[in-house]
Amino acid sequence: MTTIYDTSKFNRRIKIYEYVGGSDGAGGRLDDWKTKEGYSLIFSRWANVIPISGKYLYETKMAQEKITHDIVVRFHKKIMDVSSKKLVIEYLGARYDVDYRIDVDNQHKFIKMRCIAKHGGR
């Protein structure tokens, strides 16, 4: 039986970014996803990208949550060192904001990130 932590399912290439902002010189913050201004690439990883099922998606909407995908990668300390609210994932040109992440079973083997698919800006 395969699970979401089965590494043979890690067949999607993702890019993980940290939102770092920075001044735009006019008193504002850099935040342009299309050009990646204000974002720093942490690294690319192989991942398991799992759309949330219809039943679970319905339940999360009832609870006012917006989670649309789970994205699972092998553990890496850099991901845990960045605030989850600053993590952004790019997969097939689409943007996914990380709502929170979990070190699965606190074993430092896998990280599951609960993500919100975004359309447009931050």
Results as ranks from 00 to 15, higher is better:
D6G: 04
D6L: 06
T7A: 03
T7K: 09
T7H: 00
S8P: 00
S8E: 04
K9N: 08
K9L: 11
N11Q: 01
R12E: 13
R12S: 14
R13W: 10
R13Q: 15
R13L: 14
I14Y: 07
I14M: 04
K15N: 08
I16Q: 05
Y17D: 02
E18D: 03
E18F: 03
Y19S: 00
Y19A: 00
Y19R: 01
V20T: 08
G22P: 08
G22R: 05
S23M: 02
D24A: 06
G25T: 04
A26V: 08
G28P: 07
D32Q: 06
D32G: 11
K34S: 14
T35Q: 14
K36F: 06
K36H: 13
K36R: 15
E37F: 06
E37C: 05
E37H: 12
Y39W: 06
I42W: 07
I42T: 06
F43E: 10
R45V: 09
R45K: 11
W46A: 08
W46I: 09
W46E: 10
A47T: 04
A47W: 07
A47Q: 06
N48V: 09
N48E: 09
I50A: 12
I50K: 15
I52F: 03
I52R: 02
I52L: 06
S53N: 13
S53V: 10
G54F: 11
G54H: 11
E59G: 08
K61G: 10
A63Q: 11
E65R: 12
E65G: 13
K66I: 12
T68F: 07
T68P: 00
H69T: 03
D70P: 02
D70Q: 13
I71E: 03
F75W: 07
H76L: 06
K77S: 09
K77R: 15
